[in-house]
C-alpha cells in the first residue's frame, strides 16, 4: 500500500529531482548520486507520505536541502564544479548541434547565477512550479521569490542580448 504510493507519486519525480540537483550541483555524476540519495530518503519515509499534501514540493525541498548540504560539506574540498554540455539524444544532427550551442550558452549563464536564483529559475521556468510552491520549497516569502526570479531573468537576458548583439555564439 505505502510502496504503491511511492512508485506512483515519487518515482515519476526522478527526472525533476535529477534536473534540479544537476542545476544546483553543476555536475552530472554528483547529481545522479544526489537523486539516488533523495529517492532513498523518500523510500524510507514512505509510510509518512500519506500525510503530505504536496509530495512534489516536499521532494523538491528535500532535494534542495540535500544539495545544499553537499555543497556546504564539499565546496572547499572535492566537489568538482564541472560544466558538462547537456545534450539531448535524438533530432537531426544540424538542429541538435545548433540546439546544443544555444542551450549550453543559456545553461552556462544560469550556472553563473547565485545558488538561490539558479534554484528558483530552475523551479519556475523549467519545472513550472507555482510561486507558492517555490516559496514553500525555498523557505522564502513571496516578495523575495519574485525579486530573485526577476533578477535572475534580467541578468540572463542582458547577457543573451549582448551575445546576440555581438554575434558571438
Amino acid at each position: 500500500m505505502t510502496s504503491e504510493i511511492y512508485s506512483r507519486q515519487v518515482l515519476p519525480l526522478q527526472d525533476k529531482i535529477f534536473r534540479f540537483s544537476r542545476r544546483l550541483l553543476s555536475s552530472e555524476v554528483t547529481a545522479k548520486d544526489a537523486t539516488q540519495d533523495v529517492l532513498l530518503k523518500l523510500w524510507k519515509l514512505r509510510k509518512q507520505l500519506n500525510d503530505i499534501k504536496n509530495i512534489e514540493a516536499y521532494a523538491m525541498t528535500m532535494t534542495k536541502n540535500h544539495c545544499y548540504d553537499l555543497l556546504k560539506s564539499k565546496h572547499s574540498r572535492t566537489l568538482e564544479l564541472v560544466h558538462s554540455n547537456y545534450t539531448k539524444p535524438g533530432s537531426s544532427l544540424d538542429s541538435q548541434i545548433e540546439a546544443r550551442d544555444e542551450a549550453s550558452i543559456v545553461s552556462k549563464l544560469i550556472n553563473e547565477l547565485p545558488e538561490q536564483q539558479r534554484a528558483i529559475i530552475q523551479l519556475r521556468d523549467v519545472e513550472q512550479f507555482s510561486n507558492q510552491e517555490i516559496e514553500e520549497i525555498m523557505g522564502l516569502n513571496s516578495t523575495s521569490v519574485r525579486v530573485a526570479l526577476s533578477r535572475a531573468r534580467k541578468k540572463i537576458m542582458n547577457e543573451l542580448k549582448k551575445t546576440s548583439a555581438y554575434g558571438i555564439q
Binding site: D15, K32, T35, K88, A99, A103, E127, M157, L160, S164
Partner: peptide, 18 residues
C-alpha cells in the same frame, strides 16, 4: 531572438531525463 534562446532552452531542459 535572445528570448527565443532562453525559452527553447527551458523546453529542452525540461525534457532531459536521467
Amino acid at each position: 531572438e535572445p528570448y527565443a534562446k532562453l525559452f527553447k532552452f527551458f523546453e529542452l531542459e525540461s525534457k532531459t531525463e536521467m
